[in-house]
Simulated scan of single mutants.
Amino acid sequence: MDHNVRVLFVCLGNICRSPMAEAVMRKLVAEKGLEERIAVDSAGTGDWHIGREPHEGTRGVLDAHGITYVGMKARQVIPQDAADFHYIVCMDRKNLKDAHEMMESALGQQAAGKLFTFMELIPGRGVPDVPDPYYEGNFDYVYELVDEGCHALLDKIKADMGWS
């Protein structure tokens, strides 16, 4: 299946924020009938959770909203992601910096506009980063941000691609 658009969400360990965003975005894409056009994935800048399912807090919030995460396993960002994804959405500024460094060799001139922070999608919220619920325990608040931001991202993709 060849997708027109590939989206990658990036956080630190790929067990809380980025898999939450992946699951929410997949649901939105499916609701709009765009599964053939948009592929969604997530990854972490750290390597200590590779192969693990999403954090229990993330799973709980997704379950409460009827959003599936079946088959999702943590993986680490790799340089090839720079070429494979059109939108690389980092959950905070530190992960933006780290992801850029991890993909720098493969990014070349493609970097402009491809990597950005999640909160750039919803600037009206007035916070620069999606807080890490692994440390904060605020999974419901993170879900609110993720849901709002994923709607904004889908609107951005549709506008960028000229889809109605």
Results as ranks from 00 to 15, higher is better:
residue 73 K to Q: 13
residue 57 G to Y: 08
residue 79 P to E: 01
residue 157 I to E: 10
residue 79 P to K: 01
residue 22 E to H: 01
residue 67 I to C: 05
residue 106 A to H: 12
residue 29 V to P: 03
residue 58 T to M: 05
residue 148 E to S: 09
residue 143 Y to Q: 09
residue 39 A to P: 06
residue 6 R to P: 03
residue 120 E to R: 08
residue 25 M to R: 02
residue 4 N to R: 15
residue 47 D to N: 10
residue 94 K to Q: 15
residue 155 D to L: 09
residue 63 D to S: 08
residue 25 M to C: 06
residue 6 R to H: 11
residue 36 E to K: 11
residue 6 R to M: 03
residue 116 F to M: 04
residue 111 A to R: 15
residue 67 I to W: 01
residue 148 E to M: 06
residue 66 G to N: 12
residue 127 V to R: 13
residue 55 H to S: 02
residue 20 M to R: 00
residue 27 K to N: 11
residue 21 A to S: 07
residue 4 N to K: 14
residue 77 V to G: 00
residue 83 A to R: 14
residue 35 E to A: 07
residue 73 K to W: 07
residue 83 A to E: 15
residue 33 G to Q: 08
residue 140 D to A: 14
residue 105 S to I: 12
residue 154 L to M: 03
residue 34 L to E: 06
residue 43 A to D: 09
residue 1 M to S: 11
residue 76 Q to G: 00
residue 9 F to P: 03
residue 102 M to F: 10
residue 33 G to N: 09
residue 114 K to C: 03
residue 122 I to T: 10
residue 49 H to V: 00
residue 39 A to R: 12
residue 103 M to N: 02
residue 37 R to W: 11
residue 29 V to C: 01
residue 157 I to L: 04
residue 94 K to N: 15
residue 14 N to Y: 00
residue 123 P to D: 13
residue 121 L to Y: 12
residue 159 A to M: 12
residue 5 V to L: 07
residue 69 Y to F: 13
residue 107 L to C: 11
residue 119 M to W: 10
residue 12 L to H: 05
residue 135 Y to K: 10
residue 36 E to A: 11
residue 133 P to L: 05
residue 147 D to Q: 13
residue 120 E to W: 08
residue 100 H to D: 05
residue 50 I to G: 06
residue 136 E to D: 05
residue 42 S to Y: 02
residue 58 T to H: 05
residue 15 I to L: 00
residue 32 K to R: 06
residue 12 L to G: 01
residue 66 G to K: 08
residue 103 M to H: 09
residue 73 K to P: 04
residue 135 Y to L: 05
residue 122 I to C: 08
residue 155 D to Y: 07
residue 91 M to H: 09
residue 151 H to K: 12
residue 77 V to E: 00
residue 18 S to E: 01
residue 135 Y to I: 02
residue 135 Y to W: 11
residue 161 M to S: 06
residue 3 H to G: 03
residue 73 K to F: 05
residue 135 Y to P: 08
residue 5 V to N: 14
residue 34 L to S: 02
residue 122 I to Y: 10
residue 14 N to C: 00
residue 78 I to F: 01
residue 157 I to N: 06
residue 19 P to M: 01
residue 139 F to V: 08
residue 12 L to A: 00
residue 92 D to Y: 14
residue 65 H to M: 14
residue 52 R to P: 04
residue 56 E to S: 14
residue 136 E to M: 07
residue 82 A to L: 05
residue 107 L to K: 11
residue 45 T to Q: 05
residue 72 M to H: 12
residue 109 Q to S: 15
